[in-house]
């Protein structure tokens, strides 16, 4: 599987996996307030620059897994290693995009994007980079707007720009497209994929939507009851065509697995 990944990476000359973080989880366990563990002894290795999708039923622990990787939660047992160093806290190299845009309503679009840069970056530099990344997501002309004047899709693009402005090595996407309409969602998927290909960060997408997972990811992890129940590569070359039979076949297999385990 890793050979296949390497092959496809070579195919995309623009993709630079060296720009991403490698992640290793060993015996990771997490329980809240002494309750039953949400994550049970999970082992996982994600090579730098990989696009991983994590799917699973509600409450399977996939969001907790994401928060553990980002260092937003402390593991009860086991450890998270990010690029060799033991990770804690979401520094400038790790960014998350939430299901909701979570923009500051009282800050203009460009200032919201600049939130993604630390205060150690000089003001003029922050503004310049914010405008640059807004251009990348196609919202350059909205830089001076209030978030309240944007559509839902535009707000989520601002949130994407905020996550990307610091050029993170790891981008965590916590169901960021769930609230968008179908067409906007496809546009966003293509935009995220394009930027990922150009920048080469490691991407972890948590999603309910198996179709979205197979369309975007290199590899799909199905999480069930706190462990990885299925780990499948998506060996379909990019750019991928919507409705590709290979994708549909894979989507069917994963859905079957998810539904087959219905209690």
């Amino acid at each position: 599987m890793s050979a296949a990944t390497a092959l496809r990476v070579e195919d995309r000359s623009a993709h630079r996996p060296d720009a991403g973080l490698a992640i290793a989880l060993r015996g990771l366990t997490k329980s809240f307030d002494g309750g039953a563990p949400v994550i049970r002894g999970l082992d996982l290795t994600i090579p730098a620059g990989q696009f991983v999708a994590v799917v699973g039923r509600s409450g399977c622990g996939k969001s907790t897994l994401l928060r553990l990787i980002l260092g937003l939660e402390e593991p009860t047992a086991g450890r998270v290693t990010v690029d060799g160093g033991v990770g804690n806290g979401a520094g400038q190299s790790k960014k998350i995009m939430f299901q909701e845009p979570r923009l500051l309503p009282w800050a203009r679009v460009a200032d919201n994007v600049a939130v993604g840069l630390g205060r150690e970056t000089p003001r003029a530099e922050r503004r310049k980079r914010a405008l640059g990344v807004l251009d990348e997501v196609g919202l350059a002309e909205k830089a001076g707007n209030w978030p309240a004047t944007l559509s839902g899709g535009q707000r989520q693009r601002v949130a994407l720009a905020r996550a990307l402005v610091s050029r993170p090595a790891l981008l965590a996407l916590d169901e960021p497209l769930g609230a968008l309409d179908a067409l906007t969602r496809i546009e966003m998927q293509e935009m995220i994929e394009r930027i990922w290909e150009a920048q080469g960060f490691t991407a972890i997408l948590v999603t309910h939507d198996v179709g979205e997972a197979v369309a975007m990811a290199d590899r799909i992890l199905v999480v069930e009851q706190g462990t990885i129940a299925l780990d499948v590569p998506v060996d379909v070359p990019r750019p991928r065509r919507r409705g590709d039979p290979a994708l549909a076949e894979l989507e069917g297999r994963i859905l079957e697995r998810l539904l087959g385990h219905r209690a």
């Binding site: 937003l72 979401a90 520094g91 909701e100 979570r102 500051l104 800050a107 939130v115 993604g116």
Partner: peptide, 24 residues
């Protein structure tokens, strides 16, 4: 959710107060 966003995006307590809590 905004406060969590501020924390995750590296705001310290002072920044969190001036940029998120007080305007809110």
């Amino acid at each position: 959710q905004l406060i969590e966003m501020g924390r995750v995006y590296g705001m310290n307590r002072r920044e969190l107060f001036w940029r998120v809590v007080l305007p809110g």
